[in-house]
């Protein structure tokens, strides 16, 4: 009997060692005034490039971004903005100069500050890694992008394996 228990434990340990690490993803979360919504990746890009400035109900979108020095920021500039952080900053100087948007995206480094931003900015939009979502906060749901939920196959913003 002890031999059987040891074998089961060994098998369980081996299975755990062989299992792939949980996948991390870039998830986009809207402020408290926004119900969970679906958006296309191209519309998301338009928002972050300052071409779309309002939610469908006409309220202005208040954006937050993370620096490229963070893992979330690296995925954002590479996969969403499609440009370097330098070019993104220059682009937004032009957006503001033309008067196309009200304010530049706020730069927030820490995930906790992003969550605070979303709590206090009903019309906000920000991003986190899925591992940075607080599991106790069931009310904060990521946006569906291109018809996919984070964690499902085909979700466009999978973090690269370190």
């Amino acid at each position: 009997m002890p031999r059987r228990i040891i074998a089961v434990l060994l098998l369980a340990g081996a299975a755990r060692a062989a299992a792939p690490p949980p996948k991390d993803e870039l998830v986009f979360v809207a402020g408290t005034a926004r119900p969970p919504a679906a958006i296309s990746s191209s519309d998301l890009r338009r928002i972050y490039l300052g071409r779309t400035t309002r939610w469908p109900d006409g309220r202005r979108i208040v954006l937050a971004v993370r620096p490229a020095a963070t893992a979330a920021g690296r995925i954002f500039y590479d996969r969403v903005a499609g440009m370097s952080e330098i070019d993104f900053s220059r682009l937004w100087l032009g957006v503001l100069f033309r008067g196309d948007a009200e304010t530049a995206p706020r730069v927030i480094r820490d995930a906790a500050d992003v969550r605070r931003f979303l709590d206090r900015t009903p019309d906000g939009l920000a991003f986190l890694l899925s591992s940075e979502l607080d599991p106790r906060d069931s009310a904060r749901r990521p946006l569906h992008i291109d018809g996919r939920d984070p964690g499902t196959a085909g979700y466009p913003y999978l973090a690269p394996v370190p």
Binding site: S84, F88, W92, L93, P105, V107
Partner: peptide, 14 residues
């Protein structure tokens, strides 16, 4: 890369 972040931070009014 910290520098452009500083630009955006400065541009953000609040």
């Amino acid at each position: 890369p910290k520098l452009p972040a500083a630009v955006l931070a400065a541009l953000a009014v609040s």
